[in-house]
Amino acid sequence: MKPFTLIYYVLSVVLYLVALPLLIYLLFKQKYKESVPARFFLFKNPSFKSEDGIWFHVCSLGEAKALKPILELVKERDIKITTVTHTGQTEAKKYDAEVRYLPYEMLLPFWIKKQRLLVVLEAEFWYMLFATAKARGTKVILLNARISDKSVKKYLQFAWFYKRLLANVEVIYAQSEVDKNRFLALGAKNIEVIGNIKLAGKIIKTKEYTKPKQECIVAGSTHESEEESVLKSYVEYKKQVDAKLIIVPRHPERFESVYTLMKSYADKNSLTLSKFSQTQNFETDLILVDAMGELNNMYAISDIAIVGGAFREDVGGHNPLEPAFFGCKIITGKHFHDQKELFKYVHHVQYVEPDEIHKALLASKDLPASMVEEKINLEPIINKILEQ
């Protein structure tokens, strides 16, 4: 082990020991009951069964979904996938692949087996992952790589570290010229701009629902505090327009708390409320979609989509391609830094502060539906990767 790698590894062990009480506490949290034991204690998380496969690493749900068009181009290969979050794991298990949680860095030297390629999506930069994979003889490739506006200053402050990390990478396929220049500033080499691979994804609905007669608003992929802003705006909007509001929280562990919040608004404003899992219809004013995999189906019957994740600076926005594909008029927040490249291709979007959602809803009447301008052909890119 190289001196720098050894020092880094020792620090990762120290951090693990310091964080151990917190990790034990998280074991009892519903959100982490599967991922923490798997990632930090290797519980039901063994090494991959075979070697010499193609290993994809993603963080969470969005990146796991983005794998679909890629995996369709490598069907005959031995595919392995690792994720960080539970939602990413659930999505990854839909594919014909060996799926695992990515262990904490301290455990990686004992866990990783040689694979032909390790393809890491977006901004999953783990030093021990890259260094250990390369030491095992695995070629490391970054795909759909990005460095967000919010993060770039921090990366540049630690450029000495990222230069060592990126030295383990064979080639970087970046989302934009801006990202390419940021990687160059960190000392990276062999960078090619390909656009955002999410533009290649096939957007489909899994079920056919009848669109309500009233105007239909869906608040999709919402986070804590965003639902309250949407509900306040909807209550005011409802006084002027006969409309329904469907809320689809980003994380399933929040279903009950969001329902409690919606019930308080329903009771105070004489609105009807239902859980979609219980009714499977849209007869009430407020509907909580408390089931996974339904978001596209909701976009398909909606007139207006309020895309969550961008009303909070610490989230960075969510994918606008799906509501645009179904012709929704899109409203989102101003903190969409993690999805900036995708929003570049979506037209007629209203970017507002949380307290401006009501005005945006009223303005939607006179605006055209959102639309996606561009697609990307993944096949030549994947062929290049397979030639590595």
Rank of each mutant, 00 (worst) to 15 (best):
S50G: 05
N168W: 02
I287W: 03
A200V: 01
I204H: 10
A243R: 03
V36D: 00
L362R: 11
E294G: 07
E122A: 07
L378E: 11
L42K: 12
S257A: 14
L107K: 14
I217Y: 06
F255S: 05
K340V: 11
K344E: 15
F130C: 09
N281M: 03
M128G: 00
G333F: 14
K153Q: 11
Y345M: 08
L342R: 12
T83Y: 02
D314C: 09
C328I: 01
E374R: 15
Q115W: 02
V169C: 04
H358C: 09
P368W: 01
Y173G: 00
G137F: 02
E374T: 15
G195C: 04
A363Q: 13
R39S: 06
T222S: 05
P3D: 00
L42W: 13
L61N: 06
N144F: 05
M371W: 05
I287H: 03
Y32N: 03
L22G: 13
A123G: 12
N144E: 10
H57Y: 05
A266L: 09
E63F: 06
K365M: 09
L321E: 09
L71G: 01
A310P: 07
I247T: 07
P69M: 10
S257P: 00
L288R: 12
M106N: 04
I330T: 05
W126K: 07
P46W: 10
V193H: 10
F40I: 03
L23R: 12
D366G: 01
L23P: 01
V352R: 09
G317Q: 08
K268W: 00
